[in-house]
Structures are given as C-alpha cells and as structure tokens.
Amino acid sequence: MVEAAGLDQQETPRLRELDWSILMARAQDGDREAYHRLLTEISPYLRMLVARRIRDRTDVEDAVQDVLLTVHAIRHTYDPARPFAPWLVTIAKRRIVDRLRIHGRNRRREVVLDIVHEGVADPQADVVHDQRHLQAAVDDLPPAQQQALRLVKLQEMSLKEASEASGTSVAALKVNIHRALKNLQKMLSDRIMP
C-alpha cells in the first residue's frame, strides 16, 4: 500500500507514527474503535521493543501487557500536538526496566534446590515431624495460654463460648491467645533455626 503510493521505506515509520497520533487523539475524544485499532497496531511494535531486552517469551507478553495497561491508565497525558512514538517508547522502556528489576530481585532471592536438599524423602514424614514440633511447643506454653489456644484456635470455639467454658474473660482470652501465638512463633523458629 505504501509502495503503491510511491513512498520509500523511510517514510513508512513516519506515516505509521502520524496514524498512531491521530488514533490516540481520537481515542482521547472517546472513539472506542480508534482506541481498539491503536492498541492492536502498537502491540506487535511493543513486542519487538520488549523482545530486544527480555528473552523469556512469557515475560515479553507480561511486559507488553504492562505497557498497554500503562498506556490505558495515562492516555489522558498524551499531547496530540507531539509525536506519539517517543511517548510510547518512553512508557515501554520504563515498564521493561521495571520488569528487569523485578526479575533480577527474584533471581537473587531464589535458591535452586535439588532432591539432596530434601530433609526427608517422604513428604508425609515431614508433616508428622512438623506436627510433633508444634505439639511439643504447645505443651511448653503456660497453662492459661494453652487453654486459650486450644479452645479458640484448635476447637474453634467463639470467644464467648471459650470464655464460658474456661471461666476467663474475653479480654483475658484475647491476651492469652496473642501471647501464645507469639510464643509459638518464637519457639518454633528457635527449633527450626537454633
């Protein structure tokens, strides 16, 4: 179509950008069809931009979606008197950098585990082991905390029911449950990481 009009290849990007600028201006005026066409046309361009920096295909698609969502969220900031492509590329670059930062942070935190790292070959044995630790920790709690924890958390009584069953006020139960959970957290973390 462009060649038939007698235009060379260098003029094609300028025409595309002009078309995108017009589509965005129409979209800002509420033209849904123009907005849909704009998003459809810029998606392959964005995919190409993103793929230059991000290799994982899933991350490329996620980054493109991030850019499209950002364009949608800030479309009102586009000035139709200015070129569209630089505005779009700026948004794309920022979303690409955001995704690379997230990926870098996640990669630094991830630890690759082999089967050798498994504590027990049988996952059910881990559950039994954890239950024993938890039961021992609950048994080590002061009696008032044990009772409050068992009634409200393990037997799933309401605070009112537990108060009547134990002869303890609701406020005292809340305090004992809070202290019990804090103590359990400390005891279990000490047992796991001495």
Score class of each variant (00 low, 15 high):
2 V>L: 15
3 E>L: 14
6 G>H: 02
6 G>M: 08
7 L>K: 09
9 Q>L: 12
10 Q>E: 13
10 Q>M: 06
10 Q>D: 08
14 R>F: 09
15 L>T: 00
16 R>M: 12
17 E>T: 13
17 E>I: 08
21 S>G: 10
23 L>Y: 04
25 A>K: 09
27 A>P: 00
27 A>L: 00
30 G>N: 06
31 D>V: 07
32 R>N: 04
33 E>H: 02
35 Y>W: 12
37 R>T: 10
38 L>K: 03
39 L>E: 06
44 P>K: 00
45 Y>V: 10
46 L>V: 08
46 L>W: 04
46 L>H: 03
47 R>K: 15
48 M>Y: 13
49 L>Y: 02
50 V>G: 03
52 R>E: 05
53 R>N: 03
53 R>E: 08
54 I>V: 14
57 R>Y: 12
59 D>T: 09
59 D>E: 15
60 V>N: 10
61 E>P: 15
62 D>N: 15
68 L>G: 13
68 L>F: 13
70 T>W: 15
71 V>A: 05
72 H>N: 14
74 I>A: 08
77 T>M: 12
78 Y>N: 01
78 Y>D: 00
80 P>A: 00
81 A>E: 12
81 A>I: 03
83 P>D: 13
84 F>C: 02
84 F>D: 00
86 P>L: 06
88 L>R: 00
88 L>M: 01
89 V>H: 02
89 V>I: 08
91 I>Y: 03
93 K>C: 02
93 K>P: 05
95 R>H: 04
96 I>V: 15
98 D>E: 13
101 R>F: 04
102 I>N: 09
106 N>Y: 01
108 R>N: 05
108 R>H: 05
108 R>M: 11
111 V>R: 02
111 V>K: 07
111 V>W: 03
116 V>G: 10
117 H>C: 02
119 G>T: 05
121 A>Q: 08
121 A>W: 04
125 A>L: 01
126 D>F: 07
127 V>M: 05
131 Q>W: 13
136 A>D: 15
137 A>F: 10
137 A>I: 10
139 D>V: 07
140 D>W: 06
141 L>Q: 05
143 P>K: 06
144 A>D: 13
147 Q>R: 15
148 A>D: 00
152 V>H: 07
153 K>C: 11
160 K>V: 11
162 A>P: 05
162 A>T: 03
166 S>G: 04
166 S>H: 00
166 S>F: 01
167 G>N: 14
167 G>S: 03
167 G>C: 09
175 V>Q: 08
178 H>F: 10
179 R>H: 01
183 N>S: 14
185 Q>E: 14
186 K>M: 13
186 K>F: 10
186 K>C: 06
186 K>Q: 14
188 L>S: 05
193 M>H: 15
